[in-house]
Design a protein around this nucleic acid. Structure first.
Length: 852
RNA sequence: GCCCCAGUGGCGAAACGGUAGACGCGGCAGACUCAAAAUCUGUUGCCCGCAAGGGCAUGUUGGUUCAAGUCCGACCUGGGGCACCA
């Protein structure tokens, strides 16, 4: 028995696809397009199982769509800038470019061995000057359109990576990459004005109906629209006023204090003349973002001694405090406290003995008083002058109007979303194309002088930005006046690179970032596939970029990704040796009694729970090894079987074995059938043996089922249906009329259906079935609607909702016929125990329920 | 604390409100073999019963319905996101 030789077959077909340039896409306005994209990888050097899953899912979509007749664009590239290359340069004395391109070469080889239907002619790497030149052009266009600005602000400084970070890149007060507690620094930096699109980015979430609800929700929260009012409080004995933001203007009559952030300008001013206050401010600042998380329970404040005048009550003055729980970044960095109707204000007021004035009553009872807890729900306003008797919502409106009329504030909307800080003090990134001139200020580099290339001769010995240390690079003449000036030494956040690569793929070698011919044809991406970890950062930035590109004439749409699928992660058990060291899965052995030991020492191993594969826990399986041992088709099939793609997948050797066996079995079924197939191209016989007829119907039902399940990303169910069909066809050993024809038709269809999943063996089987043309050119099979319904159907018969038997009757039989048949089942009669039916529910072709 | 998502055999999982457990993994029994591997066949939710059949089963608990894994309410557990956002 000839076993299927995956090694030989997989390389053969990969070469044939490549030679025939099957997957190279051309703009063709006459054909419907479909753009399939998976999130491009960072070139770390090796692909991991997460990549295998991601690219397998995308490839199934791409191959399926191609078979359906779409003009498919399915490209691949490299998110190639970033700090690891600089770390490698420092630690291993390899130039970042060499390190990166070597890694790309290796990973490209590994990806190619997966047999993906990728148009490699469109490959790009963001570190290539051809790519970043185009990015610099976009920067200049955005700059001109007023979407880029430089401003001094408190920024997040990562002391380990020696660079600033965007708000989105600070997680729990730590740098997303280094994990080091982030420090606040006041620096002059470059920003993209993403906030200009806040309203639009939020509103348009509603149009993204092919995005997961979860991701839309996360973006909604991140953008953080908040309606309320500004209130300006006059200060006793001072000319300036303190502006606060509140979402509860209706509770203004319940205000009992003002609180400023330690970083508020007024706090800084007061600190100059008050050492105790200065100490408190310093303490708050020291606590920083990270420590604040730990100490968040403890609210602390300092009474400045200043008094603020209540805007509506001439005789009321409120103490002004500095409080550690007030954020400088949100709203105005100052609040008014209404302890009766806010938990934090309540805690603070309780601690410092400040007044608690009830102004909202849940039931309208004027005598209602807040007790041990604040009341934050809806209700009727009380003790509030002109607001008394109004409900909360109406009161908010009235306060806004009154504030405005008096010049003391107004209703407003604020956002949590900040402008996107893109400056990074690193070498391995896209240089920001501007020059600083003492006479002319900030001068953009003329487009004709792009790209501003990174210098090759850099040193990574000193900490800090290598571009800044470079002896000559930054010295340049001012493009405007020609006098000596300095290049900007900041480079772009690498998230900038990945915010538009999907557009660059449309015309990857064009002089402009994307040609309108290609971009307008291919964009938006019809199906984007990737991990949910990019739900905010990458996806939000890309949505901004697409808008900015459209505004600057580089496109015509706002939303870059029409469909988004977020896949689950790949998990594995972890293993710890007796010494407490992590072990790789191949370093352990499972004994017959189920115990697990370390192969090298024979000593017992602690088996940890299954969790996301990570290098640090060594619970990883290298895709290259699996492809060597089992082949790419097996790895792909395993990724698709069993677990729904959106859920986490547990890696298991047994599962891989199962996938491998199925491929071997299909090969045998097709190449060495027990009973022969009809000749290729034979026409369908007029009559079919009943078994053959049933099998033919099963084939058509499978076409319908697999097609629908592929559309809906239910690949695991599609695989199950294909296996079921394989079982059905395997059992069709009838020699009756037409059976040989059904066998050929069945297996040819089966091969087409598995094509997107296991493309190599499918091509090989297609050739074995006598076809000279490649399977990847075959159209997707169509189900015959007439064969999707059976002539007779089996109905469940229930008595009082309990199953007591089944009946088989003609499809769409009359209701009475179904009732009669059901009542005729002996077991049904027994269950009825002689009682007459009170009611008989008949659902045609489904069920009969007899109620007694 | 707030907001999502998920709980179904030994395991991964299926199931337009209509025969729960498709498909697979694992197990058990058998065939082939000197033997093993590979392959093939049968069997496999739990309990009672020789059998026919019956009872119990989709995290817990109420409800809606002729009928609930599926819809609604409360709760428990696990995972994820946000979090002093005024």
């Amino acid at each position: 028995m000839a076993r299927y030789n995956f090694r030989e077959t997989e390389t053969t077909w990969q070469k044939r696809w490549e030679d025939a340039r099957v997957f190279e896409a051309q703009v063709d306005p006459a054909r419907p397009k479909y753009y399939v994209l998976e999130m491009f990888p960072y070139p770390s050097g090796r692909i991991h199982m997460g990549h295998v899953r991601n690219y397998t899912l995308g490839d199934v979509v791409a191959r399926h769509r191609r078979a359906l007749g779409f003009n498919v664009l399915h490209p691949m590239g490299w998110d190639a800038f970033g700090l690891p290359a600089e770390n490698a340069a420092r630690d291993q004395k390899i130039h970042p470019a060499k390190w990166t391109y070597d890694n790309i070469a290796n990973m490209r080889g590994e990806l190619k061995r997966m047999g993906l239907s990728i148009d490699w002619s469109k490959e790009l790497a963001t570190c290539h000057p051809g790519y970043y030149a185009a990015q610099q052009k976009l920067f200049l266009d955005f700059f001109e359109a007023g979407l880029v600005h430089r401003k001094e602000a408190f920024v997040n400084w990562d002391p380990v990576d020696q660079t600033v970070l965007a708000n989105e890149q600070v997680i729990d007060g730590k740098g997303w990459r280094s994990g080091a507690p982030v420090e606040k620094k006041k620096l002059s930096q470059w920003f993209f004005k993403i906030t200009e699109y806040a309203e639009d980015l939020l509103a348009a979430l509603g149009t993204l109906d092919r995005w997961p609800e979860k991701v839309r929700l996360m973006q909604d929260n991140w953008i953080g629209k908040s309606s309320g009012a500004y209130v300006r409080f006059a200060l006793a004995g001072r000319a300036d006023r303190v502006e606060v933001f509140t979402t509860r203007p209706d509770t203004l009559f319940g205000a009992s204090f003002l609180a400023l952030s330690a970083d508020h300008p007024l706090s800084a001013e007061l600190a100059k003349s008050n050492p105790a206050l200065a100490d408190f401010v310093a303490e708050c600042q020291r606590a920083g973002t990270s420590a604040a998380v730990i100490e968040q329970l403890e609210k602390k404040g300092f009474d400045t001694g200043l008094k603020a005048k209540h805007p509506f009550l001439a005789d009321v003055e409120l103490p002004v405090w500095i409080a550690n729980f007030v954020l400088v970044d949100y709203g105005t960095g100052a609040i008014f406290g209404c302890p009766a109707h806010d938990q934090r204000d309540f805690d603070f007021a309780t601690k410092y003995g400040l007044a608690i004035r009830t102004v909202v009553s849940p039931d309208g009872d004027k005598a209602f008083k807040v007790g041990a807890e604040p009341y934050v729900g809806p209700g009727t306003i009380v003790n509030s002058g002109f607001l008394d008797g109004l409900d909360v919502e109406e009161a908010k409106k009235r306060v806004g109007e009154k504030l405005k009329a008096d010049g003391n504030g107004e209703s407003t909307t604020i956002w949590r979303l900040r402008d996107w800080l893109i400056s990074r003090q690193r070498y391995w990134g896209c240089p920001i194309p501007v020059v600083h001139c003492d006479s002319c200020g900030v001068v953009p580099v003329p487009a004709s002088e792009l790209p501003v290339k990174l210098p090759d001769d850099v040193s990574f010995e000193k900490p800090g930005n290598p571009l800044d240390h470079h002896p000559t690079w930054k010295h340049v003449g001012c493009p405007k006046c020609g006098k000596p000036a300095r290049r900007e030494t900041d480079t772009c956040d690498t998230f900038v690179d990945s915010s538009w690569y999907f557009a660059r793929f449309c015309s990857p070698r064009a002089a402009e970032p994307v040609t309108r011919t290609a971009g307008d044809y291919w964009l938006p991406v019809d199906q984007y596939v990737g991990g949910v970890e990019h739900a905010i950062l990458h996806l939000l930035y890309s949505r901004f970029f697409m808008r900015a590109m459209t505004r600057t004439g580089h496109g015509k749409i706002d939303e870059p990704f029409a469909g988004l699928f977020t896949q689950g992660m790949v998990c594995h058990e972890s293993y710890k040796s007796a010494e407490g060291k992590w072990l790789y899965p191949e370093e352990i052995e499972r004994k017959a009694d189920g115990s697990v030991v370390e192969t090298a020492t024979g000593r017992p191993v602690t088996v940890g729970r299954r969790e996301v594969m990570s290098k640090s826990k060594k619970n990883v399986v290298a895709p290259a090894r699996i492809i060597d041992e089992y082949g790419a088709d097996t790895a792909r099939l395993f990724m698709l079987s069993d677990s729904p793609p959106e859920r986490d997948l547990e890696w298991s050797e047994a599962g891989v074995d199962g996938a491998y066996r199925f491929i071997q079995r299909l090969w045998r079924d097709v190449t060495e059938p027990d009973v022969p197939f009809a000749a290729k191209g034979a026409s369908r016989p007029a009559t079919l043996d009943p078994k053959a007829d049933a099998a033919l119907r099963a084939v058509h039902k499978t076409i319908a089922g697999v097609s629908e399940n592929l559309e809906n990303f239910r690949f695991n169910v599609a695989v199950a249906q294909i296996r079921t069909l394989a079982n059905t066809l395997g059992e069709l050993d009838a020699k009756g009329a037409g059976a040989d024809w059904v066998r050929r038709f069945g297996y040819e269809t089966l091969v087409k259906l598995v094509g997107p999943m296991v493309p190599h063996v499918a091509e090989a089987m297609w050739a074995e079935l006598g076809h000279a043309a490649m399977l990847c050119h075959e159209p997707w099979p169509k189900a015959d609607p007439a064969l999707l319904v059976d002539e007779s159907v089996t109905l469940a018969v229930q008595v009082n909702g309990k199953l007591r038997g089944t009946i088989t009757i003609a499809r769409d039989a009359a209701e009475q016929a179904a009732k009669d048949a059901a009542l005729g089942v002996p077991n049904v009669q027994t269950a009825m125990a002689g009682k007459p039916p009170r009611k008989i529910v008949v659902v045609p072709n489904k069920i009969v329920n007899i109620v007694v």
